[in-house]
Design a protein around this nucleic acid. Structure first.
Length: 697
DNA sequence: ATAGGGTTAG
């Protein structure tokens, strides 16, 4: 009778057989019910379990501990702790398994409080119960409590070690996890395929391949190497450490792998930058899950293939696959990079329409997208709607407000943040100091900078120093800026020197500029920015001989100036313009529009700022060169394509030049259009002839 | 033949 039921592996078969069996009026014995209940538990099917429970009562098997324990487990696994508890409390006889099962139920539901209460009430503490508690503490991040308990266990078994190692690993204490794993071996405790997975995960997080290799060797020695999850952990280890060939060897190694293995291999290729290989594998997969899509989309986004990321997301939509948070995060960040605001808004609407949960990461990504597209209002809306906010959420908004010229709002936001329990971090101060920089708030900047160590116990890093140098330099305090560089406890980076050099150019300190420029070119002969800045300093003085010399050195070292590029989205398509670009299909219309702009601006009294052109050409040619700047082409295209009153939004890879800034200001007045330009640094909101940056950038 | 530990994306 028992074997008949068990023969039917499929749970449905088991239940069908049972109904037949009851129908024949054969009386069940006490083996019958646990089998049926386990079948329900395996499928997490509470209604069916309830049915069996009724039969248990009807046939009088509800006094059997074994049967009752199986019932407790069924309800616990289904998440119904009320019923599980009821069965437990109504039991006349309880054994250790009853307690352990109830405890495990609370642990798996994350109810540490109740788990602890049950654990304290247990008449006798088994190793199994203690192991459960280690897991429970681990999930709540109480590593110290877990360790204390681990040390108290008298008869530690393999699972005790395994749970404690996993606890460390899950809480980011990977060194401790590995130390304990080594300890476990030294104590002669057996290892199995589960505990080595935790150890390998720890090696992966720490990027210690050699240790991972030795664990891999151990598994072969003990003969447990053929487990799928172990293979998956190893594939992940090797690919995260850049050993893609080892990962590939395992992947092609003949062991039957599952979907996770394929996903791991795809993300492995992507981690190693092998986007093509990842896509080939992706295309060859018959069965894909959300993780597969998500991995591919985020891989694309991380490698700058934004259009591909978006395309894949749309393909996923067409196939009716529901994106998870990760896919959404990746595709939104792709939108941010491409300045595809319309698509970004569509995804936001999709999230709202489908009532998807906006967690901290997703919310922060949305805020970042909105602020980087110049939509402060939308960003604030998302921010206020978020139930849970992380540091990164505040950081995104503080930085974003400042980028959009709302410096005061940004600093107020920082003050609000301090009122909450969220502690600021290094990145927060990048935002705060950046805000001061955008408005030239030298005194405030100094105060925030010193408050980092004084008040918040955060040591400033190179970037914070760079920010301060830039702030001082822009304000014309060149000596103080240079002194700050000299006082830095670490070596200044390229950006720090670059900031000072830029300040020299801005404040026409050619002596210091030349001195720094020459030094920096020696330091970094392949850096395009230094050459360009120095060349600009010479050019502004009409020193064409030196300009020519620098160009020659650049050519000799193969230094190429990154070309200016502006992007604009129209009707869901992103258009790109380079300086002097004639390749756009609507170039004739654009040039017509530029003529119209030139005519209108003449009336407004515009004079081209030809000193922005670092070429030895005559004035008229300089004017033409200025009008070829990519942002002007993009604005002209926007004037043609985007109907008012919608703002014209442009993204530029470099900083906007002085002349373009003036021209766009005038256009905003002459054509009565709102124009938003994001350069590599910040936003410029042009409206009625003025800009949100208040001439500070 | 009832209870405890593990893998992939962000």
């Amino acid at each position: 009778m028992r074997s008949h039921l068990e023969l039917h592996n499929s749970p449905h078969q088991t239940l069908k057989f049972y109904k037949l069996f009851v129908f024949q009026n054969t009386s069940p014995d006490h083996y019958t019910y646990p089998i049926l209940l386990r079948s329900c538990t395996a499928r997490v099917s509470e209604p069916e379990g309830k049915q069996i429970h009724d039969h248990v009562v009807k046939f009088g098997f509800d006094s059997d501990v074994y049967v009752r324990n199986t019932l407790i487990n069924l309800y616990a696994v289904c998440g119904n702790m009320v019923s599980a508890r009821q069965v437990f409390e109504e039991s006349l006889v309880l054994d250790l398994v009853s307690w352990n099962t109830l405890l495990a139920g609370y642990v798996n539901l994350g109810d540490v409080m109740e788990a602890e209460r049950v654990y304290d009430l247990m008449p006798e503490r088994s190793t199994i119960a203690s192991n459960s508690m280690i897991v429970s503490f681990g999930r709540k991040g109480s590593v110290v409590k877990a360790r204390r308990l681990f040390d108290q266990i008298q008869g530690k078994d393999m699972v005790s070690w395994s749970a404690m190692i996993s606890c460390y690993e899950q809480n980011g204490m990977c060194e401790e996890a590995l130390v304990l794993f080594v300890d476990m071996n030294a104590n002669g405790v057996m290892v199995d395929e589960v505990v080595v997975v935790s150890a390998i995960s720890a090696c992966t997080s720490l990027s210690v391949v050699w240790m991972g290799r030795s664990v891999h060797g151990l598994t072969e020695k003990v003969g447990i190497q053929d487990y799928v999850s172990l293979q998956n952990a190893l594939i992940h280890l090797y690919s995260s450490c850049g050993e893609i060939l080892d990962a590939q060897k395992l992947f092609n190694g003949g062991i039957v792998l599952d979907l996770v293995s394929w996903n791991s291999m795809i993300s492995g290729y992507l981690m190693c930058g092998l986007v093509e290989d990842a896509k080939t594998l992706f295309d060859s997969m018959v069965e894909k899950d959300v993780v597969t899509w998500s991995a591919m989309i985020s891989g694309y986004a991380q490698h700058g293939c934004f259009a591909e990321a978006v395309a894949l997301f749309q393909e996923m939509q067409l196939l009716g696959i529901k994106p998870d948070e990760s896919a959404l995060v990746s595709v939104i960040s792709a939108c941010t990079n491409m300045a595809a605001l319309d698509l970004g808004k569509w995804i936001h609407a999709y999230i709202s329409k489908n009532k998807l949960r906006v967690n901290v990461i997703l919310g922060t990504t949305l805020i970042d997208m909105y602020v980087k597209c110049g939509c402060v209002e939308n960003a604030l809306e998302v921010f206020h709607a978020m139930e849970e906010k992380g540091v990164s959420t505040w950081n995104a908004l503080i930085r974003g407000l400042a980028m959009n010229g709302l410096v005061e709002k940004s600093l107020n936001m920082f003050a609000d943040m301090k009122k909450t329990k969220t502690l600021p971090n290094e990145i927060t101060f990048m935002g705060v100091l950046g805000a001061c920089r955008h408005m030239g708030l030298v005194d405030e900047g100094r105060r925030y900078f010193s408050s980092m160590t004084q008040e918040h116990k955060i040591e400033p890093n190179v970037k914070h120093y760079g920010c301060m140098v830039d702030l001082l330099g822009r304000a014309g305090l060149l000596r103080e800026a240079e002194e700050l560089i000299e006082s830095m406890p670490m070596a200044p980076d390229v950006a720090t020197w670059g900031a000072l050099l830029g300040a020299c150019r801005k404040h026409h300190n050619n002596e210091m500029g030349e001195r720094l420029g020459r030094k920096l070119i020696q330091l970094q002969p392949d850096h395009d920015g230094f050459h360009v800045l120095l060349s600009n300093i010479y050019a502004s003085r009409g020193n064409w001989g030196d300009v020519f010399e620098i160009r020659r050195v650049m050519a000799q070292h193969g230094v190429v100036k990154i070309p200016g590029c502006s992007m604009i989205e129209a009707n869901g398509i992103v258009h790109e313009f380079l300086a002097g670009d004639k390749t756009h299909p609507q170039i004739n219309d654009i040039e017509h529009m530029l003529d119209e702009v030139a005519a209108k601006l003449k009336i407004e009294g515009y004079a081209p700022i030809t000193s922005e052109v670092s070429l030895d050409i005559d004035e008229e040619e300089k004017e033409t060169a200025l009008f070829n700047h990519s942002e002007k082409l993009a604005v002209a295209f926007g004037l043609i394509t985007i109907p008012p009153p919608a703002p014209i939004r442009i993204i530029k890879n470099l900083r906007i030049c002085n002349d373009c800034h003036t021209v766009v200001k005038l256009i905003s007045k002459a054509f009565d259009r709102e124009i938003v330009v994001r350069d590599r640094h910040r936003f410029h909101h042009f409206k009625h002839g003025s800009c949100s940056c208040m001439e500070f950038w």
